[in-house]
Design a protein around this nucleic acid. Structure first.
Length: 645
DNA sequence: ACCCTAGTGTC
DNA sequence: CTCGGAT
DNA sequence: ATCCGAGGACACTAGGGT
């Protein structure tokens, strides 16, 4: 795992008990890089990645022994574990890694391999192993390194400009493959310890960007082809193991190891998440499970709406207004001295209590000892004629930051109650939870609080006509739409189920594609393009109004045919920075018209217009030409109609 | 001291 | 947030 | 039917470049 130390007496003395003690004795710069760090690194000859891994480990665990990072070589992990489970096309293996395809494993043997991996002592903690099984070495936390940065690192390693890397990416496939092809080494000359890889990755986010790239580059440099492939895949979150029910396998293994019941583990995993569960078990053992119950001030991930309403919806059903805003779960607890504790958590369980004025006051007044409310933080705003209308989520956001040009009257719209006075209500049918919610909130609705609270509008509908009428009513009030809830359904923590189903307006425009971006050729779906620029007509030609995701494989064929037959390629290439990476593409002459469905128009500044949640619903090839596409004027009309802008 | 970029979380 | 593909 | 990863807009923030 180590490079040759420099032959100095000091270094030899420092290293006599191994690199962990060496770094400890050097005793400087733990967790922070300074001049002395570079000196230590030179002195000990550890290399950036090893030094970083040891420092991270020492920061977390100052008593770490000399063999703290002793573990299975990363190459063995890749070859014996990832390779057989990743399901790479066998014919790619010789070219990518210089390896012959391994024996294909039966599904049972794949499961067995995962089980063995969990059981065997490999120098990795349980939580670390679980992270690897899920292809998430960051264990649910932020990766802190994205696609573009990896391109940058690769470019530096092979002395090529990034543009060349992007070019190769179009042809060669995904970034991990390109990393594999960036060396002739089949495996690391000196084995890289798996623990060094895992510790490096999991602590990467706690250091600066520059250091991150240094450390990663050093790690990649040590690795051979297969190791580079897996490492890049892990960082990008693209390592998907071909095993059924990973979570179940892991829970089973946990059950075996700790002697805990599967049921209690499953519910604990829903409340925490699988990584939180592992950390808890490692820290506190089976005793720790007792603390994992639904209770106030322990945030949970809320239930999510599953889909659109099916045409054969069963009646009667519950139909309620869908408010545009921020999902917020409000918690109340009362301690033994009678002090009230409050919490306000977002979907990702971030605590926003301090950010939202008035939550504490609202919680004080809730007529109960303890509760967990589910609802939406929603706003009302005065339009240009002085009439109130529901604010959009963007307006709520900007108001919370104190940057809204006009005041937004916030209120909390409660729509579910999952906990009340010491009782977990998630197992009750929705209609009972709703009744409890009404009892709890009715005394407070209409009171002039710093953060007013209301019940979500909603009622039982007996048929489609009633549902439609209500829907139109909500839309007329300016709300996002409506939501059907199955009255008999329980509250599915952290799950997207069809217990809740959305209905939103379907607005479409005919727009022109003015650029197409290459997809990853190794990705599923086999489509040449995975996103497009959409544009509308305007006095100054075609005006970009955003980008839109690609179409399905079949439609994609038609797109390509149209581009070819109508000669739409201008010959110019374009780049576009998406939310995850920068992709390369080709400019298109106006010719391809598509119907784009979207949820509204957002306008960051008067000069730019963009669509909210745009997607292509169908091609209009042979139906209308680019000069019949919708115009900027049409977009402005829609904006006015909805009172926006 | 300032501006820009990459990463993150909200929908 | 929405969608398609895989399962 | 369900899950998961692909894609979208927006706006903040810390860290790094200049």
């Amino acid at each position: 795992m180590l490079r040759e130390p420099q032959q100095t007496d000091v270094a030899a003395w420092m290293l006599q008990n191994g690199p962990v003690d060496g770094v400890r004795q050097a005793g400087v710069g733990i967790g922070r890089r300074g001049v002395s760090d570079i000196y230590v690194n030179d002195l000990l000859g550890l290399g950036e990645a090893n030094l970083f891994a040891i420092q991270s480990e020492l920061r977390e665990n100052p008593q770490a022994g000399p063999d703290a990072l002793t573990s299975l070589p990363f190459f063995s992990l890749c070859k014996g574990f990832f390779l057989p489970l990743m399901g790479i096309a066998p014919d790619r293996l010789p070219g990518l890694f210089g390896l012959q395809p391994p024996q294909p494993l039966s599904p049972e043997n794949r499961d067995a391999l995962v089980e063995t991996f969990l059981e065997r002592e490999l120098g990795l903690s349980l939580a670390e192993k679980v992270g690897l099984i899920f292809g998430d070495p960051f264990r649910g936390r932020a990766a802190s390194v994205r696609h573009d940065t990896l391109c940058h690192i690769l470019a530096q390693m092979v002395f090529l400009p990034i543009s060349k890397i992007r070019e190769q990416l179009i042809k060669a496939g995904d970034l991990p493959s390109l990393f594999a092809l960036s060396t002739v080494k089949k495996k690391a000359d000196t084995p890289v310890a798996s623990a060094v890889v895992v510790k490096t990755l999991s602590h990467l986010s706690s250091t600066g960007r520059r250091r991150r790239t240094e450390v990663l580059q050093d790690l990649f440099q040590q690795c051979g082809r297969l190791e580079r492939y897996v490492l890049a895949g892990l960082i990008l979150g693209k390592v998907h193991l071909n095993v059924s029910g990973r979570q179940d396998l892991i829970l089973k293994a946990l059950s075996f190891k700790y002697g805990a019941g599967l049921e209690s583990l499953t519910s604990a995993a829903a409340l925490l998440d699988i990584f939180g569960l592992c950390d808890l078990l490692e820290e506190k053992g089976i005793e720790g499970l007792k603390e994992v119950t639904l209770k106030p001030l322990s945030p949970i991930r809320p239930a999510l709406a599953g889909s659109n309403i099916p045409s054969d919806l069963k009646f009667p059903a519950w139909f309620e207004c869908k408010y545009d805003g921020l999902r917020l779960m409000i918690h109340k607890d009362t301690d033994s001295q009678g002090r009230v504790l409050a919490g306000a958590f977002t979907r990702k369980r971030n605590d926003w209590l301090e950010l939202i004025k008035g939550v504490h006051n609202l919680v004080q007044l809730l007529p109960c000892r303890s509760a967990i409310l589910d609802g939406e933080l929603h706003g009302t705003i005065l339009d240009r004629w002085g009439a109130p209308r529901p604010a959009t989520v963007y307006e709520v956001h900007s108001y919370l930051r104190g940057e809204s040009p006009v005041p937004v009257n916030l209120k909390y719209v409660g729509f579910d109650l999952v906990y009340l006075n010491g009782h977990d209500l998630t197992g009750l049918p929705f209609r009972d939870r709703r009744r409890n919610l009404e009892t709890l909130l009715t005394p407070l609705t209409g009171m002039p609080l710093p953060l007013p609270v209301v019940l979500s509008q909603g009622s039982r509908v007996e048929n489609k006509e009633q549902l439609n009428r209500l829907y139109e009513q909500y839309r007329h009030q300016g709300h996002e739409g409506g939501m059907v809830k199955v009255e008999s359904s329980t509250y599915p923590i952290a799950q997207r189920t069809t217990n809740w189903m959305k209905r939103k307006p379907e607005e479409t425009l005919d727009l022109v594609l003015t650029a197409a971006f290459w997809s990853d050729p190794t990705a599923a779906g086999n489509r040449p393009f995975d996103s497009f620029i959409i544009a509308c007509r305007s006095p100054e030609g075609f005006k970009e109004v955003g980008t839109v995701a690609g179409v399905d494989a079949g439609t994609s064929v038609q797109v390509v045919q149209t581009i070819m037959s109508q000669n739409l390629l201008t010959g110019r290439t374009v780049e576009h920075r998406g939310s995850r990476n920068t992709s390369a593409g080709v400019e298109l002459a106006p010719g391809l018209v598509v119907s784009v469905k979207f949820e509204g128009i957002v306008r960051p500044d008067p000069d730019r217009v963009a669509l909210r949640s745009p997607r292509i619903v169908r091609l209009r090839v042979g139906e209308i030409g680019p000069y019949e596409a919708n115009s900027l004027e049409d977009l402005h009309q829609i904006q006015l109609k909805h009172g926006l802008g």
